[in-house]
Write a protein that binds this DNA or RNA. Structure first.
Lengths: 226, 226
DNA sequence: TGTACATCAGTGAACGCGCGTTCACTGATGTAC
DNA sequence: TGTACATCAGTGAACGCGCGTTCACTGATGTAC
């Protein structure tokens, strides 16, 4: 049962995180400051310690939220209508990946950019959301393969294969190692385009980054044509 | 003519940059601090102002150096023996790209990672080294196409094409727009794998990142087979 | 329904530390005659 | 070759600001009888 007090507590925690995100957006992820958040909220710094035991704990919460938010966005894309066309479903999912990055650049930096100095992410806390997200990316691929709409031709190098099997077993991914590998390949490939777009290395040269990404995504999926 | 005094000045400037890089490696790029550098060098902070007018000017120097160092590494790879096999030359160059990133992770973060809060890179100062580096990446590709060892099949989307032509004209890249596009595609694709490797998102899942990158690079170059 | 008590939110001072930049200065090194 | 002078490297104090975390505290809100 959630008391009114607990409800209020959660609301304020959310508010703190909102201000934190706002501040990271302006000053960079590394510059997150409890004192600055307190100032913005018109509270004393010490009041924040009622909600988060330390700056690190707040950062961890923000990272978990970011991975969860990304996974939600991917899930929504997976649930969008695709008329049984699983390649289209995959397209939707990877389009959502970029959309989320563009709409939440700070969160994207937070989880995929430079690590924050003197902060160590506790892996066991973030990992479940990471797995959830990647499972969604893989889902469309598996659907496509199972329905004969896609074929995974490339097999991973032997050294990678062994490690992949361990990863799959540990996280209980419902995929074969070849499917996992194909998913990772599409992911890393598109991820590069997004990173370079986000940090302004691509737009000056390319111009229409939207079209570029669409083209890259199509090329990546084309490799899976039966 | 370079006087002894000027020579000494350059040496100290270099020393400052070395300490700066060392510090960034430990505390993150955003945490670069003049006072900390001075402390390490056993100088007063104000002495540093004889060499760099401000923290921003030092950062700019570090960025230019990083792009130059990357371009040098690419050039060395391009100059390595390849027996007229230009696909091999391209392989060498893109392998060097990753090697440089792994050997200079801080410099890589500095130029391709999160922007430093409150710092704006003066584009006109960094751009020449950026162009030099990318020209080397493209060179092998052009050689391969000209000698019939490679074929660029994919044409860029129309909206991108127009922008590409402007970019090529402006920077005087000695390539066709289709070649430039093919180069950008390989670059963004591999860049993603490197970023995810560097920030520890890939190694836990994949294990042998070396083999993974080699495989990805081969796949990317395979698309150019005649 | 009313009251006593426990729980919790938020305060304010303090600790010990960090930062970039400006300023007037001392003392060493180089240059011109 | 020796000396006067200009140039330059580096100092030290100061300005005005930032940070995370601990501690003893006040006053409001909720709970049990």
């Amino acid at each position: 049962m959630i008391t009114r007090r607990e409800q209020k507590r959660e609301n304020i925690k959310d508010e703190i995180k909102t201000f934190a995100r706002q501040q990271m957006a302006q000053e960079g992820t590394a510059a997150l400051s409890l004192r600055a958040i307190a100032r913005d909220m018109e509270l004393t710094v010490t009041a924040l310690y009622r909600y988060f035991a330390s700056r690190d704990e707040l950062i961890t919460a923000l990272i978990v939220d970011a991975f969860a938010s990304l996974a939600d966005a991917l899930q929504a894309a997976a649930d969008a209508p695709h008329n049984g066309d699983y390649i289209q479903q995959a397209r939707n999912i990877f389009t959502a990946y970029r959309q989320w990055a563009l709409q939440h650049p700070t969160d994207f930096e937070l989880i995929y950019g430079n690590p924050i100095p003197a902060y160590d992410a506790p892996r066991e806390i973030t990992v479940p959301q990471v797995i959830r997200g990647f499972t969604i990316m893989l889902a469309a691929l598996v659907n496509a393969v199972n329905s004969g709409q896609a074929v995974v031709r490339i097999t991973p190098p032997a050294s990678v294969l062994a490690h992949l099997e361990a990863t799959i077993a540990e996280a209980n991914y419902p995929v074969t190692s070849a499917q996992f590998y194909a998913g990772v390949r599409i992911w890393t490939r598109l991820h590069g385009a997004i990173m370079l777009e986000l940090f302004q290395h691509l737009p000056p040269a390319i111009g229409d980054v939207d079209a570029y990404y669409r083209h890259e995504l199509d090329a990546a999926l084309h490799e899976l044509m039966p």
